[in-house]
């Protein structure tokens, strides 16, 4: 209960801090200050009138399409820094779009389980829409399709600036279709976008296996009751692989475990504990 409450509080604070430019409500323009130089480790559209930071995926695409050496060391460095420290934890604790999905899943409806193969979709989105297509066509194609941009940027900006409404065309219709698809899938499936389409989640997922912070499961104590899976926002069986690429390190599984088989901490401490358990057995 403590972890669930703490996580919700951190998610709300993070969403508020990264979207705190209320001046846009009066001026109708986006934030122009120096804080936009910081790439927040979350999918938060910089076209959102409230946003005070840059989107790392938007920045990466911009450099791939128009940069002198087609990569931004700065944004990749921030993602590597966060990933190496805590793996995908930013997805579970910081990302406002993740919070939105957690809230949408609370809408009463029939719930569906996502086949595991769909998880590879995010890597496809990363490679094709963030790197290859922007490199070839010099356009930021993930941004064109991103539902976060539609919800956080598109709809509010069109509401604030009537002149933009004259520019609406086919791409806006496509964008709204991705928004509808996102909302419906988030209601039916746990964190559907994070698991199937988020390129930032795909980048962070590479670090779960090597991050300083890690989760471990005492396999001898685990009774595979699946209580952890029921509590998990991404519907994974943590006891099968504590370093699962879809694990967003939300830690909801720990209080859900009836036999206290799940622990977390820094890599060295967790490895030492595992070693001691093995030696005592």
């Amino acid at each position: 209960m403590l972890i669930t409450t703490s996580r919700k509080i951190v998610q709300v604070i993070s969403a508020t801090l990264t979207n705190s430019y209320i001046g846009s409500l009066f001026t109708g323009t986006i934030y122009q200050g120096p804080l936009k130089g910081f790439c927040v480790p979350a999918l938060n559209c910089y076209a959102c009138p409230l946003a005070v930071s840059a989107c790392p995926i938007g920045s990466i695409q911009h450099f791939v399409a128009h940069g002198a050496y087609h990569i931004t060391l700065y944004a990749v460095g921030i993602i590597t820094l966060v990933g190496a420290a805590v793996g995908r934890m930013a997805c579970g604790w910081v990302c406002p779009f993740g919070l939105l999905q957690d809230l949408l899943f609370k809408v009463p409806s029939r719930k569906l389980t996502l086949p595991r193969a769909f998880s590879y979709g995010k890597y496809l989105a990363l490679v094709l829409l963030v790197f290859i297509i922007p490199l070839i066509y010099k356009q930021t194609w993930f941004c064109k399709l991103c539902p976060a941009g539609g919800i956080e940027g598109g709809l509010p900006m069109l509401a604030l600036d009537p002149t933009l409404r004259d520019l609406i065309g086919t791409m806006f219709t496509v964008k709204m279709l991705t928004v509808i698809l996102f909302i419906v899938s988030a209601i039916l499936v746990k964190r559907a976008f994070c698991r199937t389409a988020c390129p930032l989640g795909a980048l962070f997922s590479f670090f779960n296996r090597v991050s300083l912070f890690r989760i471990s499961v005492d396999q001898d104590a685990c009774i595979e009751c699946d209580k952890c899976r029921q509590a998990c926002p991404t519907d994974i069986k943590i006891y099968e692989n504590p370093d699962d690429a879809d694990c967003i390190r939300c830690l909801e599984c720990k209080p859900a475990c009836p036999v206290n088989a799940i622990s977390y901490g820094l890599r060295n401490a967790a490895l030492t504990q595992q070693k001691e358990t093995f030696e005592n057995a």
Partner: peptide
């Protein structure tokens, strides 16, 4: 890279809002 990141993030991204 930093000034370029700021310039990109402070220019309204038309692709992001669906009219690019």
């Amino acid at each position: 890279e930093l000034p370029r990141i700021i310039k990109n993030a402070t220019t309204l991204c038309l692709d992001c809002i669906g009219i690019g």
